[in-house]
Design a protein around this nucleic acid. Sequence first.
RNA 1: GGCCCCAUCGUCUAUCGGUUAGGACAUCAGGUUUUCAUCCUGAAAAGAGGGGUCCGACUCCCCUUGGGGCUACCA
Length: 492
Amino acid sequence: MNSKNRVRFAPSPTGYLHIGGLRTALYNFLYAKKTKGEYFLRIEDTDQKRFVPGAIEKLIESLKWAGIMHGEGVFVDEKGNVTEKGEYGPYIQSKRVGIYQKYAHQLVKEGKAYYCFCTPERLDSLRAVQEKAKLAPAYDKLCLKTYSSEEVDEKIKNGEKYVIRFDIPETGETQFEDAVRGKMKFVNKNLDDYVLLKSDGYPTYHLAHVVDDHLMETSLVLRAEEWLPSTPKHILLFESFGWDPPQYGHLSTILNKDTKKKLSKRDGDVSVEDFQKKGYLPEAVVNFIALLGWNPKTEQEIFSLDALAEEFDVAKLNKAGAIFDLEKLDWMNGLYIREKNIKELADLCRPYLEKYKDKLSDGYLEKIVSVERERMKKLSDIAENTEFYFDSPEMDAKILKWKDMSDEDLQNSLARSLEIFSGIEEKNWELNNIKDKLMEAADPKNRGEMLWPLRVSLTGKEKSPSPWEVAWVIGKEESTKRINWAIKLAKI
RNA sequence: GGCCCCAUCGUCUAUCGGUUAGGACAUCAGGUUUUCAUCCUGAAAAGAGGGGUCCGACUCCCCUUGGGGCUACCA
């Protein structure tokens, strides 16, 4: 037996990593880090209908982006091939079907499970009848009750399709201690004789989970709340095999802000990849989701991954569902953006300015980023309202005037700015220098009279960074050109 | 319908029977400021309802209500 804590993240490769899945992975990862245990990645691809090619690679890519890396399980190598590492493999369930089949049949032999030959049609009508009678829909054990073992052998020999069902006791209760919810108690007769092995020979989640987490020596299963109702089924299965179940902890659901229901693909962008594309930083996403359903019980809110691992404690996991509030994520993302150094931030922003890539030479992007950084919430903001760094702005002469300035005042103001700029030598075209010269010249009681028209003539916008910042970025020549153009425009 | 889980500001949450119910986001108002943003100050904002238990309940128990989840040969 392994004395280390062993936890896992076991997603299905259905196309992308859900943000809720990322949180589940994160908590497991943090637990392992905190307790110096092992965190491994298993792929649950037992539903052939839902398998999406390339999904495993994408899943791992998203986890890697977030910095949630496992030391055991399924990996992607440098060549892009899916590989595995670890003593408990294979870690991809489709490679383990023989194992599941062996255990399922063993249970049948021991009289704890049975073959079921019922057609989907019969199951459907059975369910319909039960629902109409306001009963809990459940399999009626028909095949268990009606067929002798000889009849079963005969049917199988004739090639009849079957599934293997778990024979759940009709009496008694199943109890367990949930790491986040405490004592849980379920009445066995409410439990259905669920399918262990499907007619295609693949296991259901239930069988695969129990067999794998026993064989892989998982000590704690932190998983989504939606699994809570099937946990007694899993406990009973473990017991049938004579195995000790792992400890369970069921995580609260992440809810959609508008519908207050489980966040789903239909609600829009919920995949990790979507957040990445929209310009969220992994630090912010990780920090934010960590706090959705977990709290360190202090007033600290900003945590690096390492700091989270330091503080993480299963006992501090929350029970209630948490609404995913994008506004707070935006704030937090802005915070992390402002902490980035210019070089790194520029590199992160570059993909969003693909259409201007010819104009981004010689540190130009670094300059833009240093000016825009404090007003960005997402990396993609670098492409919002920033055209004036690349092209002469569209100018609306009406907004050039500061407050109730006269035409003459405006001309004077712009002329004065032009004069100041021409007084600054090219080699002294530095941010602080430009700022000092402008501030010196501006009337302290009414700086807007000078700064507003100048800024608008440089940007064409009512809202933008300061005139000295923009002037510094676009350079003396371009700045001068734009002021001259504004002067002309204002005269018309 | 059946089974299960959950319940403090709009949102994320603190409170492990005694607090002016705290923090953060968002909102609003100020300050800094040419504008925006940043930053700083401040304000408004919560224990779903009803029963118990207790000297005392947001906190413990029960009921109601509300919300959510599960109810597949999907996970």
